[in-house]
Simulated scan of single mutants.
Amino acid sequence: MTDSRTALVLFSGGQDSTVCLAHALATYSHVETVGFDYGQTHRVELDCRLDVLAQIRAAFPDWAEKLGDDHVLALPALADIGGTALTGDGEIRVLDNGLPSTFVPGRNLLFLTYAAAIAYRRGLSVLVGGMCETDYSGYPDCRRDTLDHLAKAISAGMDAPIEIETPLMYLDKAATWAMTETLGGDMLIDLIREATHSCYRGDRTTRHEWGYGCNDCPACELRSKGYAQWVAQKKVSHDL
């Protein structure tokens, strides 16, 4: 049964946020999306997200009826602060503090706070994000504990209940591909391989079996490894 609540999906146009969007459309009565322009070096994702939305509307008519407005907010201050490989030309590496240079301090905290403000104005009660503790790059703002504390603070500060749902929190990338197939079959798998963008370097020139990317950055490595594991698991299941 469809959940009568309404949701706002943090939608970057990448694999994880697209699976989260599919989950929300399969779950809630009305779904809107929000993207952020924060000076990211892989800003090609901002173009890809519009293509993904258009393809979802065309390929899944039942979902299209639930899919409402898309919002895009500019957060240039994240790039102005600098010091990260995602908003500059820095090398992708592990820093002395143990975090990857792709970590943008406060990014998810700001994204969710701004998303909550939109949700408040739009009458939406659930924020849906692709944060994950299982296959992730060590970002502290992806942890469930962080998000639980943030949800409490936002709900208190707005005097309105806001839930932060993270469907992928405890899934590895192979399980994310499996979830994709469950939600939308081969059509959604093909859409994610062809239309989404997750590569930190913004490479849309090289097509791999799992999709487009440099096949060298942490995001591509996770996506590639997860796809290979999912395909192997499917083969074993088929052979049994």
Rank of each mutant, 00 (worst) to 15 (best):
A7H: 03
A77I: 03
D62A: 15
E91M: 11
I92W: 01
A156W: 11
G226V: 03
Y120N: 08
R223L: 06
Q15H: 10
Y170H: 14
A116R: 06
N97T: 13
L53A: 09
R122S: 11
A119I: 05
C48V: 05
D70K: 01
L150R: 12
F111E: 05
D80V: 14
H42G: 04
A116V: 03
T27L: 00
R43G: 14
L168W: 06
G68N: 00
C48Q: 13
G14Q: 00
S29N: 12
F60C: 01
E91G: 09
D69T: 08
A175H: 05
E65R: 15
S137F: 11
L86P: 13
L168V: 10
K152F: 09
L112P: 01
T180E: 11
A22P: 00
A232N: 05
H71C: 10
H23K: 04
Y120S: 06
A219Y: 07
G39I: 07
I162Y: 10
T196G: 09
A74R: 15
L10Q: 00
T196Q: 06
E32N: 02
D3N: 10
L127D: 03
L109K: 11
M169F: 13
N108H: 09
K66T: 11
T87N: 09
L191T: 08
E221N: 13
G68M: 01
V72M: 13
A175F: 01
M179F: 05
D148G: 12
A153E: 15
M1E: 10
D159M: 04
K225N: 09
G202K: 05
Q55N: 15
A119G: 05
A175G: 08
Y139C: 10
L150G: 06
Y114P: 07
A26T: 01
D69K: 06
R207L: 12
L147Y: 14
K173Y: 05
Q40I: 08
L127R: 01
F103G: 12
M187R: 15
I189K: 11
A74I: 13
L99R: 15
V104F: 03
L73S: 04
H208I: 03
C199A: 02
R107N: 03
F111W: 03
E32A: 01
S17L: 07
G98L: 00
R57V: 02
D96P: 14
D141A: 04
G39P: 07
R204P: 13
T206I: 10
I154Y: 06
A174N: 02
D69C: 08
T18P: 04
L109H: 14
L171T: 03
C199E: 08
Y200K: 08
D159L: 00
L53Q: 11
W177I: 03
A160S: 14
G129D: 07
Q233S: 08
G211L: 04
L25I: 02
F11H: 00
